[in-house]
Structure formats: C-alpha cells, structure tokens
Amino acid sequence: MAKWSMVIDLDKCVACQGCSIACRFENNTPVVSPEEAALGRSILWNEVFPLRSEGEAAIASAQAKFLTRPCMHCEDPPCIKVCPVGATYKDDEGIVRQNYARCIGCRFCTVACPYGVRYFNWYEPSWEEGMDTHLNPDRVAGRGDLEGPAIRPKGVVEKCTFCIHRHHKAIARAEAEGREFRNSDYTPACVQTCTAKARFFGDFDDPNSTVSRLSQSRRAFRLLDEAGTSPKVIYLHEG
C-alpha cells in the first residue's frame, strides 16, 4: 500500500500558476465571474499566492515569495474529524477524499482546515458556452459516491484529491496491459504540468522514491507544522 506524498521545491517554482490551470481543467473546477472572485468565491484547488509577510511592496517589485498550495493530505486531518456524515475521509493510501453525494454543506470542514484548501460551491457551477462541452469526462462514482472531477451540485464542499481519478485510471490501464501497477504510473496533473519541474510525487513509504529522498533534504519543511496535522505535502526552501 503506497502512501502518496508530494514535494514542492519553492526555490524552483516560478509562480506561473500552471498547476492551478492544469488542475482546473483536470478536475472541472467551475469558473467564477470577476465579481464573485472579488468576493472571495473563486475555487482553486491548487492556489498560488504571495506569502502575507511579504507585503504589497515586495509583490510590486517582483521580489515576493509565492506559495503554491494543493491539499496537504494530512496524516491527522482536522477536516475529517469534524465531518458529521463522513463525506470526507482518508482512504487506504492516505489520500483525503471528498464525497459530493454525501456532503450536507455545513462547512465545518472548511472552518476546521488551517490551510484553507476546502472550497464551497456558493451556487450552481456553470461554464461559458463552448467550455461546457470540453469538460473532463472522468468520474469517480459509485452508489452514493460522487468524487473527483464529477460536476458538483451547489451547496457542497470540494477539494484537491491528488487527481484520484488518474490513480484509478492508472490501475485500470496496468490491468488492461496485464502488468503490475507501478507507482510511476500515477501522477497528478499539477505535477505533470509544472513548468519548472518543481513538483515531485510518489510513495512516501518507499525509502528510494524521489519524495522520500527529497524529504530528507535540509531544505525540507512542512506548512504550519505547529498545527499538528502532519501534512504529506513537503516544501523545499532555502533558509
């Protein structure tokens, strides 16, 4: 059983937001109007933003440090503990998942998450004409389950799933080809698209995987370590 983990090298990241865009198309994240975005209702499973401590001047002079932030897929996720219905849960491989079919929209998980990786559908998602015919058809669905890139109804919470549908597809492909599933078969869209090759993905339990070796680096740190969540996304940054 793998323990999926991601390493993001902030020293390599150029803050191009390619990961955000790749994620949007991969996971059918709804687009919001500029007015709604100004109100704070945009949905970006992988958000790229300047660190608060940097201030406006640093951003203006292009000196700001940016952070690219998927879901941390914590080992001890505060969101799962507070969900009254088990709509969000950690699967066997450590991925924190979200079932749109069961979520009651109480927004307790969005409040509990210290990273702000959870997004609420304030209204029915919609796409511009032309866009709506080019949505990702992949689904992770079953009886009472609706996950991954499936179109969300209004009033439910959604979040980064490490592209869980890609995982399922990779297993199915390996099966169809009659071979063992290899960890390298499965890559989330943001890792695949990263311009600067700043993102790495793999099995944290395998001591020889890239993520395991990088996590030993002196540059490695975890976001808000003091929150006690044990994130499985590890950042690399000098100093």
């Binding site: 219905v85 979520c103 009651i104 929209g105 927004r107 609420f120 559908n121 209004k154």
Partner: peptide
C-alpha cells in the same frame, strides 16, 4: 446555514 438542507 446548510448548503444542502435536503440532506438533513
């Protein structure tokens, strides 16, 4: 306050 009161 619930986003999905139908799922109460």
């Amino acid at each position: 306050d619930m986003g999905r009161p139908d799922r109460l």
